[in-house]
Each structure stands twice: as C-alpha cells, then as structure tokens.
Write a protein that binds this DNA or RNA. Structure first.
Length: 637
RNA sequence: GCUGACAUAGCUCAGCCGGUAGAGCAGCUGAUUUGUAAUCAGCAGGUCGUGAGUUCGAAUCCCACUGUCAGCACCA
C-alpha cells in the first residue's frame, strides 16, 4: 500500500501498486498526457513502471531538463529505428544524448549523404506519427546476446558481452525495433515531434582509431518548435563569431595552401600579436621570470635524450644537414634545460624561472588543423620553473594567481580548470606520481578553484592543471597549463648543489598562460566577436572629415593622437560622413572622431563610439584622457 | 591521419540536365564638397584549386592530388 509524496509535498495513498502514469492521471488528465517519465527519489523511471513502496515522486514532462534529455534519447532511438527500416543491413551501435541533442553511430554498407539524411528524417517523422508505444523489456544477458547475434547485430552483441553475465538487461521496443538501453524513454513515439538531423560524420568504433569507422548521425531535439528555432538561430550567430571570418573581415591574417597550418600575420593582426607579447613580457618581469631565447633547430641527439625522438617523432618536422639529422623544435623544454645546465647551479638560485616566446613547429595531423586555434607553427609563452620538490606547491599556486590575473585582463570568465592525472603510458615511480598529483590537487584546493578531474590525461612525464576556454561553437581548447615533470631534468642531466653539498635533480614545472599566441588570439577574437577592447584594437581611433576644408585640422589632431601613442587612422576621402562611419564601424574601430566646420572653428572633436553613442564635442586633451582610460581598463569591465 | 562535404574575380556568392563565365561589394577614373552605418556614373578585373581523362566541345561528367569545412582520432 504505497504512499506517494508528490513534488508539492502532498501525499497520495494507494491500495495497490500503481504506475507513474496512473498517478499522473489522478492528478490531472492533462499531466498524464504530457508525462514523459517519473522521478522516484533520484531515479528516473518510465511512466508505465509500477510503484510498490512509499516514495517521493515527480512527474517529468518536457518542461523539466530531465524530460528534454529523455526526448533526445528517445529521438536517438527513433533515428536508429528509421535507419533500420530504410537500410535493414545496418548494424546499430550506440546513441547517447549530448549537449543540445544526440547522435547515433551506425555500421552501414550504404554511405550516408545529405540526401539520405533528409530521407532518414522524413522516415523518423513518419514513425513518430505511427503512434507506437515504447515498451521496456527485461531479459537475461545471454538471451540478449543470442537475440542480437541472430539479427546480425554484432556490435550490439559485443557491447552486451562486456556486461557481467548474471545481470538482467533492459531493452526497449518500439514496433519492430528493439534496442539495448537503460532508459527511461518516452511512453510513445508521438512525443517526438521537434527534432532535426544536423550532420553526418565518421567516428571510430569505441573511439579507437584502429577500429572500423562508423557513420555517425548528429541530431538535435527539443520540446517546442520555438526552442529548436532558437537553437538554430544561435548556431548561425555563433558562426559569425568565427575567428577565421573575423580575421578575414578585419584583415588580420591569412593561411594559404603552401603553408597549411602556418599563419601569415598581416599588419592589423600583428598589432594584436605584439601587444600580447609586450604585455606578457611585463608580467614575466613582475612575476620573477627571466626571458631567454633558444634555437629552433637542434640535433637529433638532444631529442633522443629528451625522449621526444621516441615519443614525439611523428609530430616533429625533421631536417638534415651534412648527414646529420635535426628536428625543428616542437617545444622549448629541452632547450631550457640546456640553459639551466650551463654552469653550476646552487639551491640558492631555485626556483629559477625561465621563459621564452618559443617559436615551435609541430606536424599536426591535417584533419586537426583549425584556423589559428590548431596550427603547425606557433609561439608558446613557454616557461620552465626549476625548483625543489618542497617548492612545487608554492610555485604552482603562484602560477595560478598569475594566470587568473591575466585571464581577467582579457575578459575571460568562462574558464574550465582540469586536473589531468597519470596516463597509461608514463614514466616515473607510482610514489612520485602520488606526490605530484597530490601537490597539484592541494594547490587547486588552496586556491578554491572549481575544477574537474581528467583521469589519464596527464603528460607522460607528469600530471597537469589545464585552463580551457570555449570557442564560438562550444568546443573546448586548452590555453594555459602547468605540468609537473620529474623526468626530463634527470634525462637531460640537470642538477644543482643542495644545502648539504650533495648533487640533486631539480623538479621542472612546464607552464604557459596563453598556451600559444595563435590559439589565444583566435579564442580572443571569438570571445569579443571581433569587437576588441581599446587596448587590443589594431586601430583605436579614426579621424573622419566632413569636407576637405578640415584636412589640415585633421592632420594636426592625428599627429597629436599618434604622439600620445594611440593607433590612429585618418580618413580624408571624398566621401559622405555616413559612408566613412559605416566603413570604420565595420572595421571595428572603437572611437571615431568627426571633424567638420564646427569642430575646426572651436578646435574640438566630435566623438562617436563603435556602439553608436555620440559623446558630443570635446577638446583633444579630453579625448586623449578618455582613450587612455579605456586602454588602462584592458579587458576588465 | 580517417569519414563525408566543398573549392568560380580581392570579398560574398550565382552559373539547371556539358556549348570556352555573371552579380553585389571592394578597386581604378570622373563628377559631387557632403554632419553620424552605403552619393552617382563609367572602367577594369577570372587558364573556374592543380593534374590527367571522357567528349567535336568541360566551371559543369570520371579519376588522382592539394587545400578548406564538420565530426572522429590526436592535441597548445
């Protein structure tokens, strides 16, 4: 005799076990119609699942986030159902819910094209309209394996085989289509109305590049049409923030066929690049780093010692001279150890912080290249801290402070922090790893950061803390990181004289904050949608004349601004003011100064902002002050 | 690298089932001297990514290569 406590706190006693659907029906027929699932405590169940004991119950509809996820999951099944109807030889594999939608991976002898995608979507709509009930089945594992093997669904059988033998499995059936699934699902296909198939792509079986490549279909599903529309609009908007588009529109850089993944920086883009470099130099000084410069090409023998020749060979550009192999450096760490090794080091010098704008090349897989964000030639704000084990935590903490301050200057707030721990392939003793991971974790706790664990994602030589940011369509990229390394100093023979006059091997912290200037600028452009704060804008102020009578006055103003160090553009063209404003607005110049008869006679400037605000007339001194204030703010609001 | 799609003027794009290319913007020239997001007119601009093939004839069809885009794998 279950007593059910509803979300509003009211209780309903029942004489017999009841289904979630029946409870919903008792509350209101409308709710029953909209019920997608039930939530018993923290546990989601189907609407036809029976409640036998006292429990709290929430009826899930498409207004609940859980409801949307259930719709997405059921839509993934609907997709598989449609594909099986259209192409019966297809083997289905997995179809999970992802952000904003779902995907399903198929092994299908027919290659999917955009046309087949349309056909599949049409069939999905048809099936949904058939109003098919979706039922949960529970089978012993071996029966399920036999069932799927018999149907030629070898991938499915393989998935089930990895589940312990004595377990009962749940399967879901809609018409002829049966899929292994934990559930819950919507009670009926008619709940699946608002969805769209988005794209097809390849994806390796079990995420392993050695396996067969399956065909993955991505889709999106929502409770209401308007939500779907809003999502599609948002995607379009996101595309406009794409740094590759902005880079072209603002004439910042280009990449061409002869240098895939290698950036040609144009004058406008190079301004941004240099500001970042200069800015970071200031920070290096402020945080006790010494800047150095090491060679870009080094002998194979060094890369063999460092382990790169073995572990990183595929990713390096190799060259040869006088029967000698060389590699173009993919990272600066071995070079920095050479600087450390030059001369006898004392414990008194530690921590020694060396930094470099390291110009690196990596022969990245062609498919990985992506505008500025994933390139083959780049500059890292690379630094290495040589210290004792006791200094690790302090140094890591100082680094986090430094990084956070810098990200704030650039207006980045949505940063994901991860702790990446020991990977399968690694060097070093377990106790060393324990110590290293604990040190980084303790630092994160000390800094009260919200962070995620990324198990197995550490470098082969040590764990790391990563700072990642999202691009315009939500993909995460690591910018800054700090990595603990107990291995390379030893391999490359680094040592210092300790207090007790013994030779000790230092610990090395690899660290970067921008990560690479290229990636950071790419993400920065997307973050600001091309509308850069004044300190970063390639041109900070434009001087626009009404007629040629103001040419001399304009030149005078321009000179004064330039003398004050503001990046100034002067537009004397024989064009209407509206035309000039439009053009300089599209070029994202933050301040526009209009000079006409009025301004020339009163020796003032009329200032307009990029956002279209008219700041009225002011003296040139007032304008300089305004600009200086904006520059000083950097990216902080 | 893998799977799929795409590659036409500086940029954004059109060019149906094969008959040697078109628009808008930008550029140049001229007129206009203009008050807060596009003044008007004229001119010029392309071996249609590269190479090979089918064909009387290829931007269009086939093949290879290169690059780009999305996803996967990899990663700052």
């Amino acid at each position: 005799m279950p007593i059910i406590t509803l979300a509003d706190g009211s209780q309903r006693p029942y004489a017999q076990p009841v289904s979630v659907y029946q409870v919903a029906q008792d509350i209101s027929p409308g709710l029953a119609k909209n019920a997608l699932a039930g939530k018993v405590g923290d546990h989601l169940v189907d609407t036809h699942s029976l409640i036998t004991q006292d429990c709290p119950l929430k009826i899930i509809t498409d207004r609940d986030p859980e409801g949307i996820d259930i719709i997405r999951h059921s839509t993934a099944h609907l997709l598989a159902h449609a594909v099986k109807e259209l192409y019966p030889d297809t083997q289905v594999t997995i179809g999970p819910v992802i952000e904003d939608g779902f995907y399903y991976d198929f092994s299908c002898p027919v290659t999917f094209t955009p046309d087949t995608l349309t056909a599949i979507e049409t069939r999905m709509k048809e099936i949904a309209k058939r109003n098919i009930p979706i039922q949960r089945l529970e089978w012993p594992r071996d029966q399920a394996i036999a069932f799927f093997k018999n149907k030629g669904e070898h991938y499915k059988a393989e998935i089930i085989s990895s589940i312990p033998a004595n377990e009962t499995l749940s399967l879901y059936q809609q018409g002829d289509f049966i899929d292994l699934c934990r559930g819950p699902h919507v009670p009926n296909t008619q709940h699946l109305k608002v969805f769209k198939l988005m794209k097809i792509a390849g994806a390796y079986w079990r995420g392993d590049a050695r396996n067969e490549m399956l065909q993955r279909v991505y889709g999106t599903a929502w409770a209401k049409k308007e939500e779907l529309q809003a999502h599609l609009t948002q995607l379009e908007e996101a595309e406009k923030r794409d740094h590759r588009k902005i880079g072209k529109a603002l004439d910042l850089f280009h990449i061409q066929e002869e240098g895939p993944g290698m950036v040609f920086w144009h004058p406008n883009g190079w301004v941004i690049y240099r500001i970042l470099e200069d800015y970071m130099r200031e920070k290096y000084v402020a945080h006790g780093y010494q800047e150095i410069r090491t060679p870009q090409v080094l002998s194979r023998t060094l890369w063999e010692k460092s382990g790169h020749w073995e572990k990183f060979h595929e990713d390096m550009f190799i060259t040869e001279s006088e029967k000698h192999d060389y590699a173009i450096k993919p990272m600066s760490c071995p070079g920095h150890v050479q600087v450390f090794n030059h001369g006898l080091r004392s414990y008194r010098e530690l921590p020694l912080r060396l930094a470099e704008f390291g110009n690196c090349h990596r022969n990245e897989a062609s498919g990985a290249l992506h505008g500025l964000i994933r390139v083959r030639a780049f500059v890292q704000d690379d630094g290495h801290i040589f210290c004792t084990e006791d200094q690790i935590q302090e140094e890591a903490a100082r680094f986090i402070d430094m990084a956070q301050g810098i990200y704030e200057d650039f207006g980045f707030t949505d940063i994901t922090v991860k702790l990446a721990t020991r990977p399968d392939k690694r060097v070093g003793a377990e106790t060393t790893w324990d110590k290293a991971e604990k040190a980084l974790e303790a630092t994160l706790q000390q800094k009260k950061l919200l962070w995620q664990l990324a198990p197995g994602e550490g470098a082969f030589y040590g764990p790391k803390i990563e700072f990642s940011m999202k691009d315009c369509i939500g993909r995460q990229f690591t910018c800054g990181s700090v990595q603990l390394d107990f291995s390379m100093p030893e391999r490359l023979g680094a040592s210092y004289v300790a207090e007790d006059n013994t030779r000790q091997t230092p610990v090395m912290l690899h660290r970067a904050i921008f990560g690479t200037l290229e990636r950071f600028i790419g993400l920065l452009l997307e973050h600001y949608a091309g509308i850069l704060p004044v300190w970063l804008a390639p041109h900070q102020v434009s001087i626009l004349t009404i007629t040629e009578k103001q040419d001399t006055f304009a030149a005078e103003i321009a000179q004064k601004l330039q003398e004050q160090g503001f990046r100034t553009k002067i537009d004397l063209r024989n064009e209407k003011i509206g035309f000039k404003i439009r053009e300089h607005t599209l070029n994202r110049v933050p301040f526009q100064v209009v000079l006409g008869e009025r301004e020339a006679s009163t020796r003032t400037v009329a200032v307009r902002t990029l956002r279209g605000h008219d700041l009225g007339s002011m003296s040139i001194e007032a304008l300089c002050q305004l600009l200086a204030q904006e520059v000083a703010k950097r990216g902080r609001i």
